[in-house]
Simulated scan of single mutants.
Amino acid sequence: MKKAFTVLFCLLLVMVMSLPVYARAGGGGSGGASGGGGSSGGTHTNHTSDGNSNVGILEAIALLVLSSSAYLVYRGKVYKKSRQSKKLLKEIDDLDAVWDEDHIYTRVEEIFYAVQNAWTMKSLEDLQPYLSDRLMENWKAKIDWMDIRKERNVLENIQLLSRSLVGIYDALDDSKDMAWFYIEGKMIDYTINEDDGTMLDGNKQAQSFIEFWKLIRKEDEFYLDEVRQKDEMNIQDFVNFSEEIGNENNGNRMRHPS
C-alpha cells in the first residue's frame, strides 16, 4: 500500500512541476529562490510510524491533486475564451486580411522567439519590427538599468508551448485594433554578473510560465505593446468585439483590458 502511495505521489509531482511559474524577458524576472537548510546540534532518532507516514503522503497527494485540478480548470477557461475569439476572427478576417488566423498566430510565434533572444543579448534594436514604441522605451530603460548594474538576464532552451487568442477589439479606426493572447512557454532563466559570470538569480533548470500579451496594430501589422503576468489578469474580463460588424459575443465592451 505504501509503495502504491509513493508511485502516485511521484506521478502527481511530475504533473505539478510542469505547471506554469513566472519568468522571462521584459523584466518578468528569474524564478529562482534560494534557501538554506540548517542542522541542529546533537543527534536524534526519527521514529515515524507507517500510519503517520501514510497520512503525510495522503496530505501531499491531496495538495498536488488540488493544484493540478486548479490548473486544468483554468486551462478550460482559456480554451472557452479562445473559442469565442476564433469565432469572431472567422467573421472579420473576410473584411480585413490583418485578422487572418494563420497570419496572427504566426506573428505571435515570431515575436516570442525574437523577444527572448534579443532580451538575453540586450539587442533591443533587433526588436524594432516587433515592439510598439511604448514598449520599446520601457524595455530600453530596463536594459539600461541592467547595464549600470553589470547584469545580464540569460534565457536558454526557449520553447513556446501554447498561444491562444483570448481577446479581440476590432475598431472602425484600424489604429485602435488590438488583440490579447494567452502565452505559455518554458525556458531556462537566470541572471549573471557580466564581469565574472557569477549567477545572481534564477537557476539552470527549465521552468514553465504564463503571460498575457497585448498586441496593437500599426498599419497592416501587429506589434507587442504590453506583457502582463497571469496573476494580473482575469481571463473572464477579456471580450471579443468588432465595431465593423457590431458583434460583441461575451460581456461588456468597456471591461476589455487596455
Rank of each mutant, 00 (worst) to 15 (best):
F5W: 12
T6K: 13
F9I: 04
C10A: 15
L12A: 02
M15S: 12
M15A: 11
M17Y: 11
P20S: 13
G26S: 07
G27L: 08
G36P: 00
T45M: 05
T45F: 06
H47K: 06
S49R: 03
G51Q: 07
G51S: 03
N52S: 10
N54C: 09
A60P: 00
I61K: 01
A62V: 01
S69L: 00
S69K: 04
Y79W: 03
R83Y: 03
L88S: 06
L88T: 04
D96W: 01
D102G: 05
R107E: 04
E109G: 08
F112W: 01
N117W: 06
A118T: 07
W119D: 07
K122Q: 12
R134T: 15
K140V: 02
K140M: 04
D147I: 07
N153T: 00
E156R: 09
Q159P: 01
R163M: 10
R163V: 13
S164A: 13
L165D: 11
D173A: 12
D173N: 15
D174S: 15
D177F: 09
M178N: 08
W180N: 04
F181T: 10
F181E: 09
E184Q: 15
G185E: 14
D189Y: 08
D189I: 05
I192T: 13
E194Y: 08
G202V: 10
K204I: 11
I210F: 13
I216M: 15
R217I: 08
L224H: 03
L224V: 03
Q229L: 08
I235S: 01
N247D: 02
N247I: 10
N250H: 02
G251D: 05
M254H: 10
R255T: 14
H256D: 07
